[in-house]
Design a protein around this nucleic acid. Structure first.
Lengths: 330, 330
DNA sequence: AGGAGCGAGGTAATCGTTGTCATCGCGGGA
DNA sequence: TCCCGCGATGACAACGATTACCTCGCTCCT
């Protein structure tokens, strides 16, 4: 098989220079109709496709966006990525993914690698608590899920605090006073905000916060059964659980059901596919990953087009979806 | 801010030529210890990082693998990708993703784009039914989930037929004779094989196949309620359902539960997080996406290292996980 | 003693495109 | 009539690294 055709081949066939051929490829108007036609025909005949690598090298920028998340297999991030990829493909932009596994060190490495590759844009769910080094990033950066620290940049976040407050008000409204909080490690900004919402709502209702009602749990490999047992074994066990994280919910619900304790009200921050199929169906605070992905990608593309508006934090709306488990009364 | 350091800067600082610096970077042994040390120090001091784009251009190969799947947000593929990315990162290989949305045309486009980028390897869940054009691909290709057609290449597949047979034998063993099949469109090879397993198992048990027990359903946007209602409204409604696709299961279970028809036995081909939390817990035929990802990546990396063993189809094992819903008797 | 063989290192070409700048006609204003 | 300006085009360098090929100085063998 013959080597792939290059610009030189096209130029030769069109009896012109590589530069002019390049002009045609890039839609430069300063080419005569005649020449343009010849080049276009040559492109066609040789099935010429410009080499993205060479182009990127020369331009100093790769038409690529890097997406950095905790874990690609996390359903939330998977959906976010899916939506970004969808939009990127429509624009002919390639998507590179990388996961941090929630290690700041890894985050640094992958970010560095991406920047090295001269990505044209970055969408990052950062786990780190200082992003000032990204100030010198050579491309626009949009943060998702967690807002940037020490850096003015775009971000698309969920209204964690308000979502938590809504969930809590819902439970409080159904008569609960003994409400437990289970969420991700509080070193995660998102988890912190949700926990703040939890406290605020309780405070507003005049209910004191009990330390033994607040459980931190690693969504990756926390033991749901253990947490459930610990809570239910308290002298005054909670009558409701607010799970501030989808993956925590997925770890808490099976043991709850196995123990037959569906009398405990339950609201999950974050929806999941089988929420409706459980008995009772699980009430959730819904935040759409697709929407977050779309907002982030839209923003990033605008920046990549040179739009210089001031950095902004976009708050994606949340809404409570009552299905049953959140309406159980004490 | 000063421009990023290039190889020339390193060479200058180490008082040697770019070629020798390049040798050091690439671990070429034919460099004296002294020179090597100088170059390494210069690299350190300048925080030099080789430019991946330039390197790839010159080498004609990008240290990158492309992963092409139906839909990134599909939990199955998300996990497969997650595992691939994990292994790739350890090897310093970048991962590019692309989704086909199950359109052959899109598949062609993204594959073309990836090849254009000179990826070093490709992992593809192809939806197309002819892969002969990939014969001229310039890099190794490993197929996942669906085996290649018209092309001898590596593949990692699930034993669809056997998994289906196992599920069916399980149901038959619990006394069911009226068993419905619900699965993906039969134009998908995977779905076809599972349906074949369904028929084989029935045939082996001497149970005739009823056409009205076989439902095709798009996992993307099929209407689970409709399918459930149609089946249950039959004159002789099935006493068990074999759902040959995880996403189908996720669409079938909520309506089944809402209708209170958990007396219908149910087995899902493909596990999902809340399977255990349902009542009864859902029995599944388990095929681990992580394992598939790992096998595919391992194979691909071997090929990328130049290993020329004969193409092979690796069959990932499946195992039935009885949890309750599959053990309901008629 | 002569040269093959090898280690260490360098020069220039090259990967495929695009930016810079020069060139070449040609029509119109002074 | 002369020169400017503009449209069209091409020669050449450069992006940053690697590869092909060469040089130089030794050691070792015959």
């Amino acid at each position: 098989m013959t080597r792939r055709a290059g610009l030189r081949d096209v130029a030769a066939r069109a009896a012109t220079s590589t530069k002019t051929a390049s002009r045609v490829i890039n839609g430069d108007p300063r080419v005569s109709a005649d020449t343009r036609a010849r080049v276009e025909q040559a492109v066609e005949e040789l099935a010429y496709r410009p080499d993205p690598l060479a182009r990127s090298l020369r331009r100093g920028l790769d038409e690529t966006v890097g997406v950095v998340v905790d874990e690609v297999s996390d359903p939330f991030f998977a959906s976010v990525i899916g939506e970004i990829e969808r939009m990127a493909l429509d624009r002919g932009v390639t998507v590179i993914i990388a996961s941090t596994r929630r290690l700041a060190e890894r985050e640094h490495i992958v970010l560095d690698g991406l920047l090295q590759r001269r990505v044209a844009g970055l969408i990052v769910a950062s786990i780190s608590d200082d992003h000032s080094h990204l100030r010198t990033a050579s491309c626009p950066v949009v943060f998702i899920d967690r807002a940037p620290v020490g850096l003015a940049a775009d971000a698309v976040v969920v209204d964690d605090r308000v979502g938590a407050v809504q969930a809590m008000e819902h439970l409080l409204g159904h008569g609960h006073r003994r409400i437990a909080y289970v969420g991700d490690r509080l070193s995660i900004a998102t988890a912190r905000l949700r926990e703040v919402g939890y406290r605020e709502a309780l405070a507003a209702a005049g209910v004191p916060v009990r330390a033994d009602y607040v459980e931190e749990m690693d969504p990756q490999d926390g033991d749901g059964l253990e947490v459930v047992q610990r809570l239910l074994a308290l002298d005054e066990p909670p009558t409701a659980i607010f799970s501030a994280n989808t993956r925590c919910s997925l770890r808490l619900l099976p043991p709850l059901h196995r123990l037959g304790r569906t009398d405990v009200a339950f609201i999950s921050f974050g929806d999941f596919p089988t929420a409706e199929a459980l008995d009772p169906p699980v009430s959730v605070v819904n935040h759409s990953p697709e929407l977050i992905g779309r907002l982030a990608a839209t923003r990033l593309f605008r920046r990549m087009n040179g739009d210089e508006v001031a950095p902004e934090t976009i708050v994606a709306p949340v809404a409570i979806v009552p299905r049953g488990s959140g309406e159980v009364t004490p």
